[in-house]
């Protein structure tokens, strides 16, 4: 039995099956990301300014990732357009670039994550706080682990300013960057020690939730686009119209993933 409307549009909806399916799926995705975005905005509006980390994300890296995703959205649509023009060779070329862009995005994101896992905040018993790196750049260190290791002091390389510092202090520190000197902090003076991991604060909890969920979508999209580039492309020779529709549906998902990033980037990195 042949499944109807895999290539031709249904008369009542004007769409073929897969397009109806992907839009229903994307509607559920809008609800998922919409709920997380709303949570972020409400948590931020309700937080004390001095407790809300700001300026800790690497804007140039985020910008590069934004450019990578914009390029990938252009190549994914060009791959589809190439099939419409019956040019299978060009489709392969554009599809390969899309997969490479997806992998580049994930590579840059993992580098960014690693940087956060080795960046720390120290809350001292006298009420002062500082951010910076611990000597040796260990990951996921906590006060309990330091105490368990029997250490009495840690070597800490503080950042030029804390994220809660005033605009003037940040401006002066940027204009006159001093030397990065290591300071010794007695473990007995530390009240809390945390890397920039989800447990650090509400900000990082929602930052990792949103970006990791988005990253999983990028990975999923890369797998599907990679499949259509590789073994799935055999269908072009047996059923070219259906294959073109599959590429369009994958492109719609990819555009949704890219559009989410277009909102994520300013909200997390710039505001």
């Amino acid at each position: 039995m042949e499944i109807p409307y895999t290539t031709k549009p249904r008369p009542d909806t004007g769409l073929y099956n897969a397009k109806v399916g992907i839009w229903l799926f994307l509607a559920s995705e809008v609800m998922l990301f919409g709920a997380l975005f709303s949570s972020y905005i409400l948590l931020r509006v309700g937080a004390f300014v001095e407790n809300w980390p700001h300026g800790l994300l690497n804007v140039p890296i985020g910008t590069v990732n934004t450019i990578v995703l914009i390029v990938s959205s252009i190549t994914v649509v060009m791959a589809w357009a190439s099939l419409k023009m019956k040019n299978f060779g060009k489709f392969k070329f554009y599809q390969a670039i899309t997969v490479l862009c997806a992998l580049m995005f994930l590579g840059i994101k993992s580098f960014e994550y690693r940087d956060k896992f080795t960046h720390y905040e120290v809350w001292k018993t006298d009420g002062t706080r500082m951010t910076g790196h611990i000597e040796g750049k260990p990951m996921f260190l906590t006060l309990a682990k330091v105490k368990a290791a029997g250490k009495e002091k840690i070597g800490f390389i503080p950042d030029p300013y804390h994220y809660s510092a005033s605009k003037e202090v940040k401006h002066t520190a940027k204009e006159h960057p001093g030397e990065h000197k290591t300071v010794e902090i007695a473990v007995s003076e530390i009240k809390r020690l945390s890397a920039f991991v989800p447990a650090h604060s509400t900000y990082f909890a929602i930052y990792f939730t949103l970006t990791a969920l988005h990253g999983l979508h990028v990975l999923g999209g890369a797998i599907v686009i990679g499949f259509l580039f590789g073994p799935g492309s055999k269908m072009w020779h047996s059923d070219p119209e259906r294959f073109t529709n599959r590429v369009e549906v994958a492109g719609l998902f990819w555009h949704f993933v890219d559009l989410v990033w277009i909102f994520l980037f300013p909200v997390l990195y710039l505001l």
């Binding site: 397009k19 839009w23 934004t66 914009i70 959205s73 649509v77 589809w80 369009e248 492109g251 719609l252 555009h255 949704f256 890219d258 559009l259 277009i262 980037f265 300013p266 710039l270």
Partner: peptide, 25 residues
């Protein structure tokens, strides 16, 4: 909505972001 229409929306959103960043800077 086809990929063509979604692409136009996406590129419009991306250019809005670029102009917004430009004005903010």
């Amino acid at each position: 909505m086809s990929l063509k229409a979604f692409h136009v929306i996406f590129i419009t959103a991306a250019s809005t972001l670029a102009f917004g960043c430009g004005l903010w800077l």
